[in-house]
Write a protein that binds this DNA or RNA. Structure first.
Lengths: 209, 209, 209, 209
DNA sequence: TATGAATGAGACTTCATTCAT
DNA sequence: GATGAATGAAGTCTCATTCAT
């Protein structure tokens, strides 16, 4: 009975709903547990009345999940746009690593995505269901990586003799490792050097000299 | 006022506490959200009275967190033992990938560890604090990988001309990616082939021919 | 975080709070122990939802204590008003004894005050703290008696050659004794005769013939 | 089904029961609410096992009430003994006032008696019931005062032309007022002077010059 | 007899949801 | 549409009591 799906075009989202989404995502960014968020906390932060939230959603869970989905989709769209704007695989890889570095030690959306992907709690599964029910299928991130790498293969920038999905997961895993390294505090290696090595490691494995 | 830390030797854990730990971990494995677990659900599953849980812990949170920590430490110990029992880096890598494959689509402890490591919710931070306060420092998994790879370098099985931490994260990232692939359902590539490629990719990058 | 102090002007007390106060005082009048009162008993009697009580107070104790304080202050105000309306000490004394007689065997506010004054349990001390923190100081009743007797001395109705505080306590003690007598069942003396003697005893001790 | 009545001769009270009584009365003297006392608090203080208390009593209430009754009776016995040992009314009055002064600002048994007498909560009524069921009737204190004053009348020390019960309550009220004064902190009059006046006031009213 | 680990009924309190304004 | 006071179902935790040792 959700009146708002969060997967409609952003321009159609009523202002109060946007305020709710922003409030939820702010609170989550501050370390709140999605399940323990109180409706009053959310509406207070959003600056609207508690009852108003129920004009747009049927339950607290719906509010939180749609807010997370909204944020996720926005991040994915930005990532997709940024990647597709780059014409070479090397540029795309650099863009990806830049994004990761930019977030510093802050939890970021990509990390959150991974968090959700590696989670099988009820909450995550519900988020995933809604993500599924939207235009995107089970895993938009994997598809994006496939698209990027597939195009790079066609352009001859990336080896054609390896299964696409292996390359997708290998690149993804290395980027993810870099991301965890960025958040890790006690590393013996400097981050710029780490980044360099990650970049070179990927190119060496998949790009013909 | 926690009377039980779960970080003492397992042999000292009172039987009722062990029942609690098993109940919590069973329930989490079945997909329950740690924060939404009810005390009565836990004690029912454990087959003990509700009040008994409070003879050993001061709050519900304490019960769940200590149970997770207990499970985590047990898994880490098993992983550590299994890895250290292998004498060559190749055997160790095989063991790691075998373990990952063995869990099939089931959420396993390693994945959970990653989940916690990529999480910054209040619950995770509390778990991490307790893990920290135990003998192990911030990140026992990273230390274990460092130890394994460091020894392999000394044995001449792994290149000595790359920063240890880069190798740690690169190997970790690839294994993690393989793990996600194992859980993923719609891959175009067969899992044994994926495993083979992950294995070869790691050897090719870090082991001198 | 108490939102309601009961010491503000009565006109500002929200209706639900008033219902709570009345319910508590009814139940106490019926012989309930203030500490054993259940929230549900109170709200049921008040005819409001259990949660509503927590919209105005932070704990059960707060509800009960504020209700008692409210009742106490109301009774004190009535007593003060009644006494100050009488112009002669004899009239005032008669009013006091009338009030005591009027309550019959029922526990009344004055008795409760004495009960609280002779009590040093935690509950009473909390009530006293709140009473203290209100406009009145430690002991409004003593101050009222001082005022009454002081004025009577000035008017020449009461001896000026005795310490005021002795007279305060002597009169208070005799009235209190009469009050206990009113509640006592097996007395050999008739109450009207007792009253007469108390009245005469006080006049004889403090009023010049 | 109480196995212990507390009203048997003190010499028959089992040692563990005596420990319980002492523990309860200690805790009450420290300001604990009788109704909120925990069994474990009592048995801990008594230095015996929790289960042991239930070898002698059937419920927590029983323990506390019997302990209070025990203390009360002991105090009454002491008071009675002390009063009866004095041969003149003046000596008896002095003894009474000495006892009151001796307790300083500390809550004492006599005050507690008054507290119970002016109380009509469930707890008090139960104590009173048990006191009733013992040898003493409703109000041993009143009877004691009657006895003392009656004898003084017979000895010609006290006026015979006033109802005995009036004198009982008048003397009792004044002594009680003095007791409250002893506990009161902000009096303008010095306590020795107050005591003197109380003493003289009583003599003047009831003893023929 | 003495014990204290175990129990579960029941209390307090929270908070998602409703609905009259 | 917007609000927030009111609600009560449901969860956490306490603690009197039991009973096997």
């Amino acid at each position: 009975m959700a009146r708002i799906t969060g997967t409609e075009g952003a321009e159609r989202i009523p202002p109060k709903v946007l305020l709710l989404y922003q409030a939820v995502n702010q609170l989550l960014a501050e370390g709140a547990d999605p399940i323990n968020l109180k409706v009053s906390t959310i509406t207070d932060r959003a600056g609207i009345g508690k009852g108003t939230a129920y004009e747009y959603f049927d339950s607290k869970e719906e509010i939180v999940i749609h807010a997370v989905v909204y944020q996720m989709q926005a991040a994915m769209e930005q990532l997709e746009k940024g990647l597709l704007a780059r014409k070479s695989f090397q540029d795309q890889l650099n863009y990806l690593l830049d994004e990761v570095s930019a977030q510093g030690g802050e939890p970021n959306c990509f990390l959150k995505l991974v968090h959700l992907l590696t989670d099988n709690s009820q909450f995550s599964r519900q988020v995933q269901e809604i993500l599924d029910s939207a235009t995107c299928e089970r895993n938009r991130l994997i598809r994006l990586f496939r698209k990027i790498l597939g195009a790079a293969v066609e352009r001859g920038e990336v080896r054609a003799d390896m299964p696409l999905d292996y390359m997708v997961f290998s690149v993804g895993g290395r980027v993810l490792a870099y991301m965890v390294a960025v958040m890790e505090e006690n590393l013996e290696i400097e981050l710029p050097r780490m980044r360099e090595l990650v970049y070179e490691g990927i190119l060496k494995e998949f790009c013909p000299a």
